[in-house]
Design a protein around this nucleic acid. Structure first.
Lengths: 141, 141
DNA sequence: TAAATCACTTGCGGAATGCAAGTGAAATAT
DNA sequence: ATATTTCACTTGCATTCCGCAAGTGATTTA
């Protein structure tokens, strides 16, 4: 018998797939912290300015991992810690994040003007930078 | 006295602003229906394959309008109908939607291969097309 | 050996969601 | 003119999700 999928999407639309994986108030912020701030542990994510609740953070990390967007492995130098990292699928979200940042910067009053200036002047280069950064992390990790 | 803002963002981060306006399971799908399917009324949105609940749809339309992403006006030829349209701010979300569609298409099994092929071959042109379509709608509306 | 730190889990009240049914105004059919 | 249908919503209710505070067990540091 053919194996049934573990869950059903509401539709086959690719945008719906994205929304089901990322459409909530926290997932993209966690990915932002990984991409632009280089965060990789539970406590680092907790320290972010938006103050995610501990149970919600645990849940989002689990979901992102189940979606194949991030991966986790124990820290070899500290058995209590887990190191979360972006998978290639997660790194591939850089253009989505970049466009969302640029859109908000265009239409809302926001901070982080440094990043915005960088994105405006060369979006492609910023994205390449994220890719390189995480390629290195994977090698040394 | 300086007027207090009607609500507070969790942070000044531009990505957080985007997530607060669009980070839920329905808002982006409504915008997709407007952009790629040309939908403009409550019943059209209801007819979408993902089956949004009526109260949630009413709430999301209200929020999107409050955020300045869409606008509404009564249909001159039918007093019961409201016609929803994308504002320039809303049209400006086309690159965000495009990147989300491309990401999902790259990493998930999805439908709507026609749109994906179009986006892959010329993303900029598809976005220009959306702009032109809605510029016309605004003129004739 | 005791205290801190790590990544969580649990319990609880309130908010958001999904579903079914209802509402009132305007349009259409008879 | 009246009845029915269509339109954009509201309302009520059960379930799920969320934020917050507190606790847990494993590991590490003092």
């Amino acid at each position: 018998m053919p194996k049934k999928p573990a869950f059903e999407r509401r539709s086959a639309c690719p945008l719906n797939a994205s929304v089901e994986m990322l459409g909530d108030r926290w997932s993209l912020l966690i990915l932002r912290d990984m991409m632009v701030r280089g965060f990789s542990t539970y406590n680092e994510f907790l320290s972010s300015h938006e103050k995610i609740a501990t149970n919600v953070l645990a849940d989002r990390l689990k979901r992102l991992e189940e979606s194949g967007i991030i991966a986790s492995k124990p820290d070899p130098s500290d058995g209590r810690k887990l190191i979360y990292s972006l998978t290639p699928k997660g790194i591939d979200l850089a253009p989505v994040l970049a466009e969302m940042v640029l859109w908000a910067a265009r239409h809302e009053k926001t901070g982080n003007q440094a990043l915005i200036r960088q994105l405006k002047s060369d979006k492609a280069q910023v994205i390449t930078h994220v890719r390189k950064l995480w390629a290195e992390k994977h090698r040394t990790a």
